[in-house]
Amino acid sequence: MYPHERSLVKRLADAPFTLLGINSDKDLDTLHARLVEENITWPSVWNGPYGTSGPISARWNVSGWPTIYVLDGQGVIRFKNVRGAQMDAAVDELLREMGIEPPPVEDEGH
């Protein structure tokens, strides 16, 4: 279910890049098993026991899931709700601004 996140994290493993999840599951025990099953290796902040009503999504005014923000190295919000190839392009652009040439996106069909 998380193939794009996985390929992004793998492709940029050596770049100054982090995928930071804000997780809104209520039940962490069940989720721990899913992390292993789905090979979710990137970090997540927990939104707390009240799920989607938790404090972080409330503060960031998130009302739909998934919601994506892309931040540059200075912590400035540069893109919002980019998905798939758009997300790759957004991250690559910000890495290039830092003078880093990101590894190319592999064709996921092969």
């Binding site: 995928l19 989720l31 970090p43 902040v45 998934p66 991250v91 830092m98």
Partner: peptide, 20 residues
């Protein structure tokens, strides 16, 4: 403990997600 600030200097994708 974890914070957003600790990733300053990196490009960060913040992904509000859930497996529910």
């Amino acid at each position: 403990p974890i914070s957003l600030e600790q990733f300053r200097g990196q490009v960060v994708v913040i992904d509000f997600w859930g497996d529910w």
